[in-house]
Each structure stands twice: as C-alpha cells, then as structure tokens.
Computed example of a mutant assay.
Amino acid sequence: MGILRMEKCVWLLSVLLFAVTNNYAFPKLDGKPSLRFVALGDWGGLPVFPFHTPRELRTASEIGRVADEMGIDFILSLGDNFYYDGVTEVDDKRFQTTFESVFEDDSLEDIPWYVVAGNHDHHGNVSAQIAYSKVSKRWHFPSYYYDLRFKIPKSNATLAIMMIDTVTLCGNSDDFQSQQPEKPLSQEAATQQMSWLKKKLAASQDDYLLVAGHYPVWSVAEHGPTRCLVKHLLPLLKKYNATAYLCGHDHNLQYLQDELGIGYVLSGAGNFMEHSLKHQRKVPAGYLRFYYAELVSMGGFAYLEASPKDLTITYIQADGKSLYQTSLPKRS
C-alpha cells in the first residue's frame, strides 16, 4: 500500500506541475542570438499500414508549427526511429511512410535531423539508416556515434553534442523481459566507443556540452535507470562537467537534475504515451523535477534554446501547450 500511495502522490505532483507550469510562454523569434533545436525520441510509427500513429502525426505537426513560429536550427532524433524492427535496406519504404511523409511541413523542409539508433532500430539494419544519409538531404547519420559542434549566432559561445549509440555500449534490451541491456554484443566495439567518448569529453572547451543517446541514465518510468550507463557514462558526465544528457526509450516526458546541476532530458513521447512510476525508487530523491505521461495526450517533445547566457529547456505538448520550462547555465 505504501508504494501505491507513493505512486499516487507522484502522479498528483505531475498533474500539479502541469497546472502550475502550463502558463510558461514559448520562446519567441526575437532576433536575440541563440541556437534552437528539438529533442525527439521514440517517434517511429508502426510496421503496418498506415505506418504511423496519430501521436506521431500530431507531434510532427506541432514541430512544424514550432519551426515556423519559434525557429528550429536542427532536430535530434534520439532513437527508435522505426518500430518495431528498424528498417531492412536503404530503400525501405518506411523512410517515406514513417519519416518523409509525416514530417512534411514546409517549415521542416530544410531542417537537418541528427540521428542515433535505439534498441528497436538495432533489431533491423542500422547501417541502412546510416546509408540513408546519402539519400535524404535532411537525414544526417554519418556513423553509429559521432560529435557535433555549433557556434551560437552573433556570439563566441559554442555548443557540442556527443551522439552516442547506447545499444553498442550496453547491449540490446527486451521490452518484454528484464528490460535492461545485459551486455554489449561486442565488447571491443563498446570499448572503442567509450574511449572515443572520453577523449571528446576531455577535450571539450565548449560553453555547453551535451551527450545524446537512446537509453536513459535516470528514469522513473517503465524501463528505469540503465545500470550500464549509471556505471560507465554517469561518472564521465560528472568528471567532465557535462551540461545535460538527452535520451528517449521511456515513452513519456521527464526532466531530472542531479546534485551537480547536470540535466537529464527524457523525450520519448513521439509515438506512444505510457504512464509508469515503476522505477521511482531507483532514482535518487529530489532528482525528478518534471514528469508528464497523460495517456490522453497526443505526445510531445523537448525544445531547447542555447544563448550566450544559458540553455533553456521547454517541454511542449503536441497540442501546443508549454508543460514545463527550466534552464541550465554555461559550463564554468
């Protein structure tokens, strides 16, 4: 009964957070120097006709509106791009039916997508998703892991993003069994990626340093914290003073922040919505700042704006409501 009461309390807290934060204003196109982007995970439609879900359509439409009214420089695709078994080849029809024909607003035509793979993508042919980068002008997936670096307009401030493959690092997961990746398919590949990541993080002098992958470090929901990432990635985020970690995997919206001020942006509501507090006791007390998983919701995503002063994170529902907003400072 104690756990049930706790779940009800956290659920009520999420409702109150929604009510309190629903009045946040969207950032506006005001001419101020900033870099604006969307973090979107788990948007990958369905493997049967019409190959998309109503939530994906509504979320795509809202991203198009945000791009038109607020501005978007790029989109981070955080994995599970094609449910349930990825794609088979570079000319797989799912690229058209689940991606191109869904995110089709004119305002999205020239916005680049920077992509990582999720566990469902690894059930299929990830190399075909990488190869699709040569087919689509907006699909950018150069390798399993890679880094990005941007200069914030009209300033000397910079933002770096390490795009990592958490399945290669930790192994694939089974949504219907343990839900935890047990071990990488290739320990050599996992070691190589971790070595690359350490070097990149150590060398970064950027004002904002982000790491983006599919599995969460921290999550209160169905899949919960990823033990492998807590063990191997979390110490690096702390050691190298990362600004935030972005992910999907759990099908809801969460914002967590640790005692060092590192933000954990979970944006996995692009296609499904699941309400679960199964792992709330596996997350340190006080970390969870925002949780949204209303089953009647049509999805949502995170909108981030990096200025020379701070990094603002706004969670936006697919019907256009601003759910929660917070900011993180530049690295010291």
Rank of each mutant, 00 (worst) to 15 (best):
His232Pro: 00
Val15Thr: 06
Lys200Trp: 10
Phe301Tyr: 13
His251Asn: 06
Leu78Ser: 12
His122Asn: 13
Arg227Lys: 11
Ser267Ile: 12
Val283Cys: 12
Thr312Ala: 04
Met194Cys: 00
Gly118Ser: 00
Asn22Ala: 09
Lys238Gln: 15
Lys330Glu: 02
Val220Lys: 14
Thr226Lys: 06
Tyr287Met: 15
Leu236Ala: 00
Pro216Ala: 02
Phe82Tyr: 12
Ala306Trp: 05
Ala25Gln: 06
Phe26Gln: 03
Tyr24Glu: 10
Val10Tyr: 15
Ser219Glu: 04
Asp165Val: 05
Gln280Val: 14
Ile75Pro: 09
Asp310Arg: 15
Gly2Asn: 07
Ile75Lys: 02
Val10Ser: 10
Gln193Val: 07
Leu46Ala: 11
Glu89Pro: 02
Val20Pro: 02
Ser267Tyr: 11
Gly300Met: 01
Lys282Pro: 03
Val102Gly: 11
Met6Gly: 07
Pro184Lys: 04
Asn23Gly: 13
Arg281Val: 13
Gly45Trp: 02
Ala318His: 06
Val90Met: 00
Ile152Phe: 14
Leu78Trp: 06
Leu253Asn: 06
Lys239Phe: 03
Asp85Gln: 13
Lys28Ser: 12
Met1Ser: 13
Tyr84Ala: 05
Pro27Met: 05
Asn23Gln: 11
Tyr287Thr: 08
Met162Gly: 11
His214Tyr: 03
Phe99Cys: 08
Glu109Pro: 07
